[in-house]
């Protein structure tokens, strides 16, 4: 926790906040940071007139300052059944990561919304601000278990509607959506969020150790696949995993989002303290 206190979420974009905060905004507002001059119009506050210029030019100009607003951080994590399989470690990893990111955001007075989604948003704590709201974040994490099928596009639609202001959007999921991830991510990107996609896959998903004649059952929709697991099939599977992740990464890059692949057998703190700092999500 102490090490997390020193971190803060950084947005790659200048986003609009709602309240006065510590982040520079595109807006002109009240701060010490000079931004520009503009001609005086009737009704402007005379306190911002630059009298030095009036003395030299005999014209009234207003001094404009950049406004510093708070940062909205959205943490959306996948709680579908697939996240609880093949072992609980995967879902635990996701919750720990979401909690860490939420905590980092809270302690720096960012406005934090944490959502759990499966086929829809099924749990959410919204607009938290300040360290005092950490217990609410923790309660959400403790109470939400992996359940339900995934329907990413529908969930993203709800996420977009429930977050009126744009901000840093952190999506934590395995991204194994049969209907595809493209439309959902496009919704989030289209809303103006600074999107980070953290794909969490378990070691068993990356390097399966299955063998023999198997009937594979999809834990979410009960879909069946009869396979005779062979070395060739395993090679083919690994190639597909790599290709799938690369496709996702390319999609994110193409749409200005950031992509991080996290294996759940690695410690969460290493991901937070090293990887996320390296990509400048945290600093």
């Amino acid at each position: 926790m102490a090490r997390l206190d020193g971190l803060d979420v950084v947005s790659r974009k200048m986003l609009h906040g709602r309240l006065q905060g510590e982040r520079r905004s595109k807006r002109r507002g009240q701060s010490v940071e000079f931004a520009d001059h503009r001609p005086y119009v009737v009704g402007d506050d005379l306190r911002f007139v630059d009298w030095n210029i009036y003395g030299r030019l005999d014209q009234l100009f207003l001094k404009l300052f950049q406004e510093e607003l708070d940062l909205t951080v959205h943490v959306a994590f996948d709680r579908s059944l697939s996240m609880g399989h093949p072992s609980p470690d995967k879902y635990r990893f996701v919750r720990q990561l979401a909690a860490a990111l939420g905590y980092v955001s809270l302690v720096h007075n960012n406005r934090v919304t944490v959502s759990a989604f499966s086929d829809r948003v099924t749990g959410q704590v919204a607009h938290l601000r300040g360290r005092a709201r950490v217990p609410e974040l923790a309660e959400l994490m403790m109470t939400v278990e992996a359940d339900g099928p995934s329907l990413f596009d529908t969930a993203c639609k709800q996420l977009v509607s429930s977050t009126p202001s744009s901000g840093v959007m952190l999506v934590i999921s395995d991204c194994l959506f049969k209907e595809g991830y493209e439309s959902g991510l496009k919704r989030l990107i289209g809303r103006g969020h600074d999107l980070y996609v953290i794909q969490t896959l378990s070691p068993e998903e990356l390097n399966p150790t299955l063998s023999g004649d198997l009937k594979l059952v999809d834990i979410e929709d009960g879909d069946l696949s009869e396979v005779t697991v062979s070395s060739a099939l395993i090679k083919h599977y690994k190639r597909n995993v790599t290709a799938y992740c690369n496709e996702l990464k390319a999609f994110c890059t193409r749409h200005g989002a950031a992509y991080i692949l996290a294996s759940t057998d690695h410690p969460v703190d290493r991901l937070v303290l090293n990887t996320l700092r390296r990509i400048h999500l945290l600093q």
Binding site: P86, L176, L214, L216, D218, I219, N240, V241
Partner: peptide, 10 residues
């Protein structure tokens, strides 16, 4: 043998 996996997508 039935084997439950997180997703049959891949």
């Amino acid at each position: 043998t039935e084997q439950v996996v997180s997703s049959t997508l891949l």
